[in-house]
Design a protein around this nucleic acid. Sequence first.
DNA 1: TAGACAACCGACCGGTCGGTCGGAAGGTTG
DNA 2: CAACCTTCCGACCGACCGGTCGGTTGTCTA
Lengths: 219, 219
Amino acid sequence: MAEVNALELDSREKILDAAEKLFARRGFSGVGLRELAEAAGISKSGLLHHFRGKTELYAAVAGRILHEFEKRTLQAISAGGDAFERFDRWLDAMIDTLAEQPTRARLLLRSLFEDDDLAGESEEEKAVDQTIERLFSHVARLLREGMEQGVFRLASIPHTLQSLVGLLVYHFASGEFGETLLRQSLFAPAAVRKRREAVKALLYGGILVRPQVAAVQAT
Amino acid sequence: MAEVNALELDSREKILDAAEKLFARRGFSGVGLRELAEAAGISKSGLLHHFRGKTELYAAVAGRILHEFEKRTLQAISAGGDAFERFDRWLDAMIDTLAEQPTRARLLLRSLFEDDDLAGESEEEKAVDQTIERLFSHVARLLREGMEQGVFRLASIPHTLQSLVGLLVYHFASGEFGETLLRQSLFAPAAVRKRREAVKALLYGGILVRPQVAAVQAT
DNA sequence: TAGACAACCGACCGGTCGGTCGGAAGGTTG
DNA sequence: CAACCTTCCGACCGACCGGTCGGTTGTCTA
């Protein structure tokens, strides 16, 4: 029946969009199904027709975001170039992906560190965990190649991955606090550009004027 | 009345300890007062005798942790030495503080990025925000001094602060995911030592074998 | 001894939680 | 036409939510 809005997306998509926004802002237990349904312009029972339950909906939201990150990671990494070029392109891709949708960083961060929250056994949640694992293994492989080729200093790969998450994801997830610190929106084009520069300067040169050639050898 | 346990701490402390553990694990809205009270070995009404409400309890927990970080920051920073020495000592202090109590990183991270969750107007919550602000201003001052003295490369101070939080706090807050990545507890002495090395290697030398003297000049 | 007070409790409040159920409406297929 | 399917809804469920209230107990002070 002709709705006012001709573009009328799928209910499923509308629900996912609304849920992404709310879950990102307040977390899994901070949002109720009623509020979720209302934000999606549907009744609670209508919502539950599309998703078996709240945890499945959350997993679907997380999965959608994680697949986007994996897609962009593969694009960036599999294009040509040496390890440094590919890594640099990957950094750009991650910053783009995080910056173009303010909800993504928060939801990604939550998926990582709230994992143990009701660590579910459902199929959907296992799929989310597997996507995370795959995503990180792509980057781990790139780091390993770079180290073997003598482009990157030898370092613990898991720790480097953790550092990258910290530098990239946390920043864009830091919300009000980050905006107070920067005195502007985290997502304004200028702020994103500056973050890109800051991260690359740190990763590629450290913070010191006279870099120490790391007394600490890799282990 | 002679309890079995002679050390019997204050109820208030017991509540704070239990709340710290639970809030860190599942967040503000993921824990109920009943569960909180039971974990502290007291009734819900008993708990509410000590704290006016759930948000005040949360603020008290966050405040206690933030004060610990501020104390250790001031200790590390105000002892002698040039900017590099003081910064290096501060890094050690932060890693020690994060590592010696697994709940701290998670709660600190939540205090930062869940700030907007019911951004309360109560006195206690304002005090928490002020402590965070003070804490970061101490470090900002140190960075500024280091840059003026030519020890640190010129860089955006807010972005450097964000990077430090990302490198330090996120790692220790990453829970199950981090442990899967490292294949060991995040808090085992060896893992903590390794994190310290990884962070310092990154900060002091970057990730490249042939560091680029940052094409990107500071802004 | 009386009074005040802090610490604590069980019972209870209105409201919300995630989830179920029995349909209603509309489209498609035979 | 009937049979079926998808989409969506309101009414309802038991459990739990944060918070209040009246009362008991024990300790400390006047």
